[in-house]
Amino acid sequence: MGARTAMLSIEDLQARVDGKPILNGLTLEVGAGEVHAIMGPNGSGKSTLAYVLAGRPGYEVTGGRVLFEGRDLITLAPEERARAGLFLGFQYPVEIPGVNNVYLLKAAVNAARKARGLPEVDAFEFLGLVREKMALMRMEDSFLSRGVNEGFSGGEKKRNEILQMLVLEPRLAILDETDSGLDIDALKVVAAGVNSQRSPERACVLVTHYQRLLEYVAPDFVHVLVRGRIAKSGDRSLALELERRGYDWVAGEAA
């Protein structure tokens, strides 16, 4: 991957969940400005990778190393990772009744600003910004007063993840199966949100089972994860080939 400096550098990463090894020596570099797609069959470790990067308790790193903008990511607490500019879009966003959506957005933005020594956002201006991003995500105004993901449909939850990403403006977004469970219209909205964030300073890792999302968010690199390792990497055409030939083809090669 050449002379560019990696924003995220994963080297020989090994991790286990409930004592069971899931990641078995995963190596990957993601540079600023790039979009990477991680594909793979069910159980290959895609979501585990996303959770390990975000620091979810119970996802135990047993070997290897992860550098995020030069810092050892694994030693940071989840909230420190977030404040350093890492964002996880959840496959199953959690409902938190009683915690207001806007309050969470504001608390999250202010936490990141505080970490950078910046003053808190102006509440009025902030609301304007949120409304602007909500319009992009085609979210109704009533969203503002609702609890976090409370009573949201599957599609609404995914759009809410992208909205949070747009408001937080992370350096690196890891989107875990953000496309699953979306109809085609919602998929386009989510893709538009992701594309609006693409810039030379930011990077994105799309974890996905299907290449459908990649029709709308064109990745620079596609990797296939098999049994906790990158079995094959390529450009966008690899996703199309996978669509045609199925995962067994790569899994067979990797074996």
């Binding site: 989840p78 969470l104 936490a111």
Partner: peptide, 19 residues
């Protein structure tokens, strides 16, 4: 979920108690 959004542990716990 709240920690992954950058909230401190104290803020997140307080928010959940309140909720």
């Amino acid at each position: 979920y709240l920690l992954s959004r950058g909230l401190t542990r104290e803020t997140a716990q307080r928010l959940l108690k309140w909720a």
